[in-house]
Design a protein around this nucleic acid. Structure first.
Length: 180
DNA sequence: CGGCAGATACGCT
DNA sequence: GCGTATCTGCCGT
């Protein structure tokens, strides 16, 4: 896993499709599932928080790979990224959607019993579903209550599209989605 | 199901 | 002050 995360954001974002992402709950059970949608951001990219350099907020993005970068946006939403690439480069992969396979009851409760298709289809919903907040910013995967596990099936068919909700550098095909 | 407005607070200039 | 890597509810078909 560590080796995978050293790669560039677009490369890792594509490779992470099919991996398993879980949060350890306080009762030690896992909540999460298969990563089915990601987006890549790096420092050369005007749409990225790291574009303007290190700030207190984006500091984690410039740290070593394998940590969580969690930010707050639109006055009410949290979004979670996995920091990737070389330390100091400001690259991260935004987690946009999971296919939940553990802790489904807990997820449904947190998501107010919405239909299965609407549990984690979007970065802020995903954070709601796993109860990820600013407290988790900087968490180290595999150590601080989050785990990332390799896919069981080797090959997942992935398509690349434009990223969602940004206004700059929209032409980059840095959103990756598992084909249904 | 698709489009639109509103909510809401933080980081940065 | 201003813009934001979004979601929800409400309206229409």
């Amino acid at each position: 896993m560590d080796e995978l995360l050293q790669g560039s954001a677009p490369k890792v974002a594509r490779q992470l499709i099919g991996w398993y992402f879980y949060k350890k709950e306080s009762d030690n059970t896992l909540t999460g599932g298969v990563i089915i949608e990601t987006e890549a951001y790096n420092q050369d990219d005007a749409a990225s928080h790291s574009f303007k350099g290190v700030t207190p907020r984006t500091e984690v993005m410039f740290g070593p790979a394998g940590r969580l970068y969690v930010y707050f946006t639109y006055g009410m939403h949290w979004c979670a990224n996995i920091v990737v690439g070389q330390e100091g480069r400001g690259e991260a992969v935004l987690l946009r959607s999971l296919k939940i396979d553990k802790g489904i009851e807990r997820v449904r409760a947190r998501r107010k019993n919405r239909p299965y298709g609407e549990l984690t289809n979007g970065p802020a919903k995903l954070c709601q579903a796993l109860d990820i907040t600013g407290n988790d910013n900087g968490a180290v995967l595999g150590v601080d209550g989050f785990v990332l596990l390799p896919p069981l099936r080797l090959k997942t068919n992935v398509r690349a599209t434009e990223r969602i909700g940004i206004t700059k550098d929209t032409h980059r095909l840095w959103r990756f989605v598992a084909n249904a």
